[in-house]
């Protein structure tokens, strides 16, 4: 089977978020970028399924500029076979979905996996858009994915529970825990990743449909009101009479 795993390049989860002086862009200075944590589930699960099937390929795909290549190499070190980078600034979810759909159409992939959302933009959109652009089902967000022949069995999370869904390839799934234990690269993987193919292609000229006018940080808290542990019960009175939340 041919797996296509889409990864995005995001600030490490410990990053303190700041913006450029005009508040139009994220300030990348001094920030460590990682593979989007949700995408790591997609990548590891694709590799596991390929291994279980005893054949097939896992291709990683990123829509990004050249500075994303270290994380693409990392995905190859974790176990992907080859990689494609669409050379473009990922303008919005629609733009990225178009690029992924174009690659998927040309490549004839059976299973397209990605994380449920990126931890920077939190769109939760690209998987649905790719499925719709290709006219195939999307299962989002998936907590479990098993394959038997051409048929996949997935657990889709819904508010308060889950649905067991069966779909036939080709399909798109967006992944989250507890799908698998994301792998980390080992030394052999890092060595072989250097020579695995990484193809760079130019983006198609699709226009974005949304634009960020300005970023802002959440308002700061006014300061904590401390209640002595001995009279902890007073907190409940404050929550009712002052904060009025209970």
């Amino acid at each position: 089977m041919k797996f296509l795993v889409c990864i995005s390049n995001v600030p490490d989860t410990t990053t303190k978020i700041t913006f450029t002086p005009d508040n139009k862009e994220f300030n990348k200075a001094g920030v460590q970028f990682v593979i989007n944590p949700w995408d790591e589930y997609a990548l590891t699960r694709a590799i596991e399924l390929k291994e279980a099937q005893g054949g097939g390929t896992v291709t990683v795909l990123n829509v990004g500029e050249a500075d994303t290549e270290p994380n693409i190499r990392k995905a190859l070190a974790i176990g992907a076979d080859d990689a494609i980078r669409v050379n473009a600034h990922p303008k919005d979810a629609f733009f990225v979905a178009q690029q992924i759909a174009n690659i998927a159409k040309d490549g004839g992939y059976d299973v397209i996996l990605m994380g449920k959302e990126s931890i920077d933009y939190n769109g939760f959109q690209v998987h649905g858009m790719v499925g719709e652009l290709l006219g195939i089902p999307t299962v989002a967000p998936a907590m479990k994915l098993d394959m038997s022949g051409n048929t996949a069995t997935l657990e889709r999370e819904i508010e308060g529970g889950k649905e067991i869904v069966e779909v036939n390839a080709p399909f798109v799934a967006s992944c989250q825990q507890p799908m698998c234990e994301p792998r980390i690269p080992n030394m052999r993987g890092i060595m072989t990743a250097r020579t695995k193919p990484l193809k760079v292609v130019e983006a198609t000229a699709d226009a974005a449909r949304t634009e960020v006018a300005a970023f802002a940080l959440p308002p700061q808290k006014q300061g904590v009101k401390l209640i002595p542990a001995e009279s902890a019960g007073d907190l409940i009175k404050l929550l009712r009479n002052e904060a009025k939340v209970i």
């Binding site: 600030p11 989860t13 978020i17 913006f19 994220f26 931890i119 920077d120 933009y121 939190n122 949304t210 634009e211 960020v212 006018a213 300005a214 970023f215 802002a216 940080l217 959440p218």
Partner: peptide
């Protein structure tokens, strides 16, 4: 945006 660490005004 940024998983609760920020907001974005989007047109």
């Amino acid at each position: 945006a940024f998983s609760g660490k920020a907001f974005a005004d989007v047109t």
